[in-house]
């Protein structure tokens, strides 16, 4: 039985910069920045055929979750829920990619559970907690907590000093 503190692991996917940021939200609703990619980290999907777009994004985001789990471990936290949140559909992607990606994670990962949400551009969720649930379950009552936490972290997304930067890897096939 782990004595690590449960927290939500949130991955914010900026669809304009094609950059991801992993954030923890503790049981008091406090958000803490963890790691962030360089801009363009996700852009490889644009060069791929429709089926391979989902494959690439699954693989890349699984790696993000792994890093998030590792950073949680170092902080004595344990992911109790995973939230993948994009601020729009993936631009220039094949039809249905975002939905397929969301359903993959929800079906594939059971413990902890996953929800894939979408917000207005730039994660502007406001006080009304404007989230669309693309796949997975997330309690409506938790959306307000999530909304406040994201609202508090959005201003830090453009501040590199707040994050551990994960540089883009060299591109390779497959």
């Amino acid at each position: 039985m782990s004595d690590r503190e449960p927290a939500w692991l949130v991955v914010l996917i900026d669809t304009e910069l094609l950059r991801w940021s992993a954030v923890g939200i503790d049981s008091r609703g406090q958000a803490f920045p963890l790691i962030q990619s360089e801009a363009g980290n996700l852009d490889e999907y644009k060069e791929l055929a429709a089926d391979d777009q989902v494959s690439f994004l699954r693989h890349r985001l699984s790696g993000v979750l792994q890093r998030g789990f590792d950073r949680f471990y170092a902080r004595g936290k344990k992911a109790s829920h995973i939230l993948l949140i994009s601020d729009g559909p993936f631009p220039n992607s094949a039809e249905g990619v975002t939905k397929q990606l969301a359903e993959h994670f929800v079906e594939w990962m059971i413990n902890p559970p996953v929800a894939f949400l979408m917000t207005p551009s730039a994660f502007n969720v406001g006080h009304e907690a404007k989230f669309d649930v693309i796949a997975g379950d997330f309690l409506r009552s938790n959306l307000v907590t999530l909304s406040r936490a994201i609202d508090g972290i959005v201003s830090q997304l453009g501040q590199p000093e707040c994050w551990e930067l994960i540089p883009n890897a060299k591109k390779h096939p497959g």
Partner: peptide, 8 residues
């Protein structure tokens, strides 16, 4: 095994 895994 598949990513992500819990470190423990």
């Amino acid at each position: 095994i598949t990513k992500p895994w819990d470190p423990d």
